[in-house]
Every structure is written in C-alpha cells, then in structure tokens.
C-alpha cells in the first residue's frame, strides 16, 4: 500500500516540479550500487530491501516513459 501511495505522490508532484523527473533514474542507480554493496558485505536482508526499492524506482521510470509517450496533454485531458 505504501508503494502505491508513493507512486501516486510522485505522479502528482512531477506535474508541478519538472526537475523531479530525473530523480527515479538517479535513485535507481544509487540503490543498485547500494544493493551490490550489501550483497558483497553479506547483508542479505538489507539487499532484499534495497532490491525492492530498485524495482520501485524502475516502476517510476516506466510510468514516466508511458506518460511521455502517451502525451501529457492527452493524459491531462483524460484526468479532467
């Protein structure tokens, strides 16, 4: 549920703040590096958590891609 709320918060926020659109990419890379470090240090449970976070940010980048492709105007029109 918390992931769903965060996703909705992101979608709402990104319409107002253009710069935020790059955040998912950076976060994705950051958590990939973090996960690699956790695995290498033998902290499996931490790697599971960060692995899940990677997928969360991947989800945001995919949403971003679909919004771009389908066109924000078109989407706004549907929402309104």
């Amino acid at each position: 549920m918390i992931e769903l709320i965060l996703t909705v918060v992101y979608i709402v926020t990104r319409r107002k703040y253009e710069d935020i659109k790059l955040v998912p990419y950076f976060m994705e890379v950051f958590f990939i590096v973090l996960t690699i470090l956790f695995i290498a240090s033998g902290n499996v449970s931490a790697a599971e958590t960060t692995g899940s976070v990677i997928f969360f940010f991947f989800t945001l980048t995919v949403i971003e891609l679909f919004i771009t492709k389908l066109g924000e105007d078109k989407l706004t029109k549907y929402v309104n």
């Binding site: 990419y25 994705e28 890379v29 990939i32 996960t35 690699i36 990677i54 991947f58 980048t61 995919v62 971003e64 891609l65 771009t68 492709k69």
Partner: peptide, 18 residues
Amino acid sequence: FLPFLLIAGVPFFLIKQI
C-alpha cells in the same frame, strides 16, 4: 547487476528518443 543497470537505462534513452 550490470545487465539490469543497462536495462534500467532504456526508459532514460527512450524518453529522449520520443
């Protein structure tokens, strides 16, 4: 992780292309 890192880059490049 290298392959996924590259796969994760697809949306980034694809948005630019679109």
